[in-house]
């Protein structure tokens, strides 16, 4: 069954991202997602090989680690390291948190704000559990979070662990949140109040939240050319 996507006719390309082509297909009769990390011609071949192999491994390891800890992520079905493909459980029907937020019209009604707060609560607690296991996602954005249908149940899956690493450092966890903060606020204007809720929920559920959030403050100030007062 593990044929490379290029000669499997039942496989449909559903998305081409910056890093990978994502196909929809079947693995041992189960619907699955096939994520192919395609070659980047701009990179030196040695560097390309090293990065691609490392990222596939990191992704598989992190997904396994999360599953063991009871964090909702797709299961890994198969890794085809010759063709740089990873076969994953298909979370369906689902949509990304980004799509969910973007379908809400601005300005947000009270009802929509309540939905946003509910998502924020969930995101915060999922990230808290993730960091409790010392897993750093490395590329947290609202495109990398899936909401399984029915969306009101707010069952949240984390995906795209290619840049993940294992680390106990508060610094790494702080940067992880910083990456999300920037992606969140640049993608969804006027949602500062929602991001605040994410951090509050993170604080409630993470053992080391005080230290991590302190680091987050430090990393924010480190951003270049920021206006500083005092």
């Amino acid at each position: 069954m593990a044929t490379k996507p290029s000669d499997l006719s039942e496989v449909d390309l559903i998305q081409q991202g910056a890093e990978a082509r994502v196909y929809s297909g079947h693995f041992a009769g189960e619907p699955c997602i096939i994520k192919e990390r395609f070659k980047k011609t701009y990179r030196h071949p040695t560097l390309e090989e090293r990065l691609t192999q490392r990222r596939i491994q990191q992704e598989a390891k992190a997904l396994l680690r999360c599953r063991k800890a009871g964090i909702a992520v797709p299961s890994v079905y198969f890794i085809d390291s010759t063709n740089n493909c990873i076969y994953l459980e298909k979370i369906e029907p689902s949509l990304t948190v980004r799509e969910f937020i973007q379908q809400l019209p601005l300005p947000y009604s009270d009802e929509d704000n309540n939905k946003l707060y509910a998502i924020a609560l969930k995101i915060g607690s999922v990230l808290a559990s993730l960091h409790n296991t010392d897993t750093i996602h490395g590329d947290l954005t609202t495109s990398n979070m899936l909401l399984k249908f029915p969306h009101d149940a707010f069952e949240l899956y984390l995906i795209d662990f290619g840049l993940s690493q294992v680390s106990q450092l508060h610094e790494d966890k702080g940067v992880d949140l910083y990456v999300l903060e920037k992606a969140f606020l640049s993608t969804h204007p006027k949602t500062e109040h929602v991001f605040e809720e994410i951090l509050k929920s993170y604080q409630k559920n993470n053992k080391k939240a005080v230290e991590v959030l302190k680091k987050l403050d430090e990393v924010r100030l480190r951003g270049r050319k920021r206006v500083m007062v005092g």
Partner: peptide, 13 residues
């Protein structure tokens, strides 16, 4: 010769 150096990408940073 390509020497292995740290490759540090964090999201879009």
């Amino acid at each position: 010769i390509l020497i292995d150096l740290p490759y540090v990408v964090k999201g879009m940073d």
